[in-house]
Design a protein around this nucleic acid. Structure first.
Lengths: 231, 231
DNA sequence: CCCGCGGCTGATTCTTGAATCAGTAGGGGT
DNA sequence: ACCCCTACTGATTCAAGAATCAGCCGCGGG
């Protein structure tokens, strides 16, 4: 008992301390979902992890589903934002792809738990997240499809390659690569292993995806990538 | 009580009928899990789908989890078997890969529901299936890792490519490709779309994975895939 | 004919855990 | 001084649905 909250704001204003607590709960939710899974945990677990009263969770979140929803939205929006940046920051297809790989692996390095939740819990699961999962999925795929469509127009895609399928395969490769770490099949504690995996995913994806030299129109800057490919 | 007698066969009725019922329930479980998900359905749904009394489900399966376990084991064993065949039936890396792609897409064509359950429900999920998920995952990946290791020894792998990672990427691509259909992002009702996707997955994977001509020792038969790449 | 046995039934019981709610604390406005 | 509003608490309530169990039905054998 004894609600020990030294900070409270005036009426009508949002309490900074309140946002603090909310963030704590969100964080705890990520950790608990990551270890026990959405269905495998109780709200009590989240409350305990956050060191917060059971009821407070319901003070900030309508129900368990909204909690998951929030975890997802925060994590996903961040991720999508980073991917957009990676695309915008690079003009060339290869560096864009590598940028996207960077974003994924960096996210995992920085917060494996969160990635685990996104990859393992939300991404797959019919009921969980309702329509937002489907939407989110299409959000990223659409983003990258556009990128690949542009690349194809520039003649950079292997002939006959569907841009949407290209987008799917990129994330398929990334997701499975990350899953290996998440699931413990690869050694996540070794940063070098992460780097190696990242590089190899990008390499194998690119070299299968880039059109062969012969067909390049290349009004773009002369690509060093050609040289890289050779070796 | 607990009628756990496997050797018992009814007089005229035959225990074959019993196996029949059990199979019916298993089939119903696949369909229900596929549409509503493991957590999203009740045993009553399975019973209704199987047109069987509620209690009979518990007559044949200890509990809900064992039901899922059975669904998984049956489906997965079949799948792994087919993959083994595909590897054994072909001597060359490229045809083996294409064979594996065939198996996956054929399985989907034949029984989308079952694939859906394997891909969406069991594959990801910490609690579900307990340790069997982990094991099963390693089963396939190990199988293919061996294949790629062999290929690398023969100089067919791009330099520096890790066999396990190669295995992961192959299934990452396949799984995501299939997911697109499962989730409705691609048109599953169009058989041509399936064929196209299958071919493109194999192509993009192979052309990124096969070592470039220059580095080939090639005691193996010259692959037409080289020519395909050119065009 | 009746006894028992095994496949089978589905209402009943029991567990779990989500969500509620009556209430405390304390601060700031009036 | 009072009031009220927001943050917060955790025992209590309640529904869902997993698992049980008391018993039926039809047959074959004694």
């Amino acid at each position: 008992m004894t609600a020990q909250n030294p900070a409270a704001d005036g009426p009508g204003g949002e309490s900074a301390a309140g946002q603090d607590r909310k963030a704590t709960i969100l964080r705890a939710a990520i950790d608990v979902f990551a270890t026990k899974g959405y269905h495998g945990c109780r709200i009590a677990d989240v409350a305990r992890e956050a060191k917060v009263a059971y009821g407070l969770v319901y003070h900030y979140f309508k129900n368990k589903d909204e909690l998951l929803q929030s975890v997802f939205r925060v994590g996903w929006d961040f991720f999508v934002g980073r991917v957009k940046e990676a695309i915008a920051a690079n003009g060339e297809l290869e560096s864009r792809i590598r940028g996207i790989c960077d974003v994924c692996f960096e996210a995992y390095r920085k917060d494996p738990r969160a990635v685990r939740v996104l990859v393992l819990q939300v991404a797959r699961s019919p009921a969980i997240g309702g329509r937002s999962r489907q939407t989110a999925f299409e959000e990223i795929i659409g983003l990258c499809t556009a990128m690949f469509t542009e690349a194809r127009a520039a003649g950079q895609l292997r002939a006959g390659m569907d841009p949407t399928l290209a987008a799917l395969l990129l994330f398929g490769a990334l997701e499975m690569g990350l899953t290996a770490f998440v699931v413990g099949l690869s050694d996540a504690s070794d940063p070098a292993a992460l780097e190696r995996a990242k590089a190899q995913i990008a390499d194998s994806f690119l070299n299968g995806m880039l059109a062969p030299e012969a067909e390049w129109k290349s009004e773009r800057s002369a690509t060093r990538s050609r040289a890289a490919r050779r070796s």
